[in-house]
Design a binder for these strands. Structure first.
Length: 279
DNA sequence: CTCAGCTCCTGCGGGC
DNA sequence: TGCCCGCAGGAGCTGA
């Protein structure tokens, strides 16, 4: 499901239900996801008040009124569902199976917030101050400190394809398979090109297109692939704005290009691009 | 250090 | 209709 825009959409959906609320109960329905849950998670969370929700890369962080924060990563298939008092007729999609409800928060407002993750690639951790998971991350792509100069420095000497380099969360934090393809198409860059062999002007443009596509996707409530929903159950609609992702064989949307979208596999993952206008 | 491949896990859609 | 295969939004780990 989630790249940066989807995670930001989740954070915004959770915020009114968690910020300033006390966690009345935390229920773990298994001993972990990708990794085991920390042993003191329930004890630390129970009774704590959530003072704020942050996002870093694809992580959501729930700051608690004690020296700790709950870190959540949704992996590939994680979803946060909000149900309960005062939320009207929340219709739970029958495709979201209750057997994958792994973590359930209940707040003092009577709201139930459930992490459902079929593939269990997600993570829930408790962090004090920093965390090795966060320490390795590069700059936020929407931050002022993510610039063409920074990207150029990160790409020096790198012979990996730019597609793979942009998926490296240590280079820039939060891009995933969809938005990398979209940004490279907008920038007119061949995804196979060695990262270290892209000129500075083109990197400046690439940075600008990355910011644009992420900003547009957040404004649209993210992308809904398969049955991913926002926390409210509504669909994000940015998938209708994809120019290349999952559009193999479609005409290139760049005006006057006339090419057609191709799918190739790089490091085991699909890339979508137009061989005519991406060089 | 860098990089490609493998791995974790379940569900779904397409092809036969 | 039913089964099998490939593929899916991530990212840590391994070994070359």
């Amino acid at each position: 499901m989630p790249e940066l825009p989807e995670v930001e959409t989740v954070r915004r959906g959770l915020q009114p239900h968690l910020e300033g609320r006390r966690i009345a109960r935390l229920t773990l329905n298994r001993d972990g996801l990708r990794w085991k849950f920390p042993p003191d998670l329930v004890q630390v969370a129970t009774g704590a008040t959530v003072t704020g929700l942050r996002r870093r890369s694809k992580y959501v962080l729930l700051d608690l009124d004690r020296e700790a924060a709950i870190l959540i990563h949704l992996g590939m298939s994680g979803r946060m569902l909000i149900e309960g008092a005062g939320l009207g007729d929340f219709h739970r999609d029958p495709a979201i199976l209750p057997r994958h409800d792994h973590v359930v928060f209940e707040t003092d407002a009577g709201t139930r917030i459930t992490l459902n993750d079929a593939r269990r690639f997600g993570m829930v951790d408790l962090i004090r101050g920093s965390s090795p998971l966060l320490d390795v991350l590069g700059p936020e792509p929407l931050g002022d400190d993510f610039t063409g100069a920074v990207l150029a420095a990160a790409f020096v000497g790198r012979r990996a394809p730019v597609k793979a380099a942009l998926l490296d969360q240590g280079v820039v934090a939060g891009l995933g398979n969809i938005y990398v393809s979209e940004a490279l198409h907008r920038a007119g860059i061949d995804p196979r090109r060695a990262a270290g062999r892209i000129g500075r002007a083109r990197l400046d443009a690439l940075v600008s297109h990355i910011k644009d596509v992420l900003t547009e996707a957040i404004a649209a409530g993210g992308s809904s692939l398969r049955d991913h929903r926002q926390t409210t159950g509504e669909l994000g609609y940015f998938q209708h704005s994809f120019r290349v992702y999952d559009r193999e064989g479609a005409p290139c949307p760049r005006p006057g290009c006339g090419g057609s979208i191709q799918r190739i596999v790089q490091s085991g993952r699909s890339s979508f691009w137009c061989p005519r206008c991406q060089r």
